[in-house]
Nucleic acid binder design. Structure first.
Lengths: 199, 199
DNA sequence: CACTAAATCTTATCAGTGTAAAGATTATTT
DNA sequence: AAATAATCTTTACACTGATAAGATTTAGTG
């Protein structure tokens, strides 16, 4: 990308992508603004024309990753014929975990900083809700209603299921985890232990 | 703690405790060796007489926290009369989550760096296994065997249950999480959604 | 077109960080 | 008591996030 031009042209996006490349290559803990700038061929202070702070760039990178994440989750919905089958939730959970297994650095990157807004209740403000969870909730509520569950139990079950899938992602992306089976084929069995789905 | 003596006397432990105090006060992301040293009243390079690197000190702090964590889990075992009742597992899970709700900084501190060794399989090397998981496994296996489950299903159920509890801790300790109920009274309901326990 | 204002980038420069080296001080061992 | 080891201080270096002042380019206005 290094051009002799004074103006880069698309520096904002380049910084985001360079940052993500560095995270995948070296990990988020050793990421520096200067490395990102160097990778884009600009000076150390150049990023400050597009981002107020390092945290601001990290926030934009996070949004970028979450968008990719959302695309993966949405395909798992479109691939399902019967939108009322609990299997849809399993498939979403599977794709949830597999996304982080395929991109191990992303899990801690997204969740380590505690800047994510989450509304666990069924009612309440959904505008600022963490999009992946918001999507899961939207799909899970009608399916669980369909199974004749009470509102309170639906809420519990949604939290329970998301916690399982989320925790599984956390565990599977740990560096020194020993598991002698293939996650892709096993995840489904593990998620099936949620009582709701076994009905 | 600041003494006029040249030798501190118990600097190694003081550094660990000061570091943990700073984590609880300001968070792990802004922790520096120099602040920890200053809090102990010693020079910036003094920690290097006891720890090879910052990461080395963080490792010792992590062990310290995990010990506290283990004590909490072990009391939940001793408080249970019937060691074969699945309720024991619920109680462990409850204490697992509540420990992190009471110490919100500890979750990311322990798990964000990926230095934890975990063996998910039922057989294999247990010596270097993450002690809290190792303890959970030891207690869960006989209880689940008692329920007449196959070895494969036991393994799945253990991972499933731990993932739920672990994920619940991750979610509950996020900074901007909105939940209009009391965790302490609700956790149990949520964990009960694991199929095994509902048998 | 010329001129101005805004946007973008560079070059210092700063305080704070982890870490290493060399030396000072105290404790331990012989 | 002397020698050795352990502990701590001082100094120094490279790297970091961030700011300020200035250079360069682009966009907008008459």
């Amino acid at each position: 990308m290094q051009n002799r031009k004074y103006h880069h042209g698309d520096l904002r996006n380049s910084l985001i992508e360079a940052g993500i490349e560095l995270i995948n290559r070296e990990g988020a803990s050793v990421l520096s603004l200067r490395k990102v700038a160097a990778l884009c061929g600009v000076s150390q202070a150049a990023p400050y024309s597009h981002f107020q702070s390092k945290e601001d760039l990290l926030g934009a990178m996070r949004e970028y990753v979450i968008e990719q994440f959302m695309e993966v989750l949405e395909t798992s919905i479109q691939d399902c014929k019967d939108q009322n089958n609990p299997r849809l939730l399993i498939q979403m959970g599977k794709n949830y975990v597999m996304f982080f297994i395929k991109n191990p650095q992303y899990f801690t990157f997204i969740f380590s900083q505690q800047c994510i807004e989450i509304n666990l209740s069924l009612d309440g403000d959904e505008t600022k809700n963490f999009p992946p969870f918001q999507l899961f909730k939207t799909k899970a509520v009608p399916i669980m209603n369909n199974l004749g569950m009470s509102k309170a139990r639906v809420e519990d079950a949604i939290i329970s299921m998301w916690a399982t899938v989320h925790g599984l992602s956390s565990i599977a992306t740990m560096k020194n985890v020993h598991y002698n089976k293939d996650w892709e084929t096993k995840i489904e069995d593990i998620i099936w232990n949620i009582q709701v789905l076994a009905v």
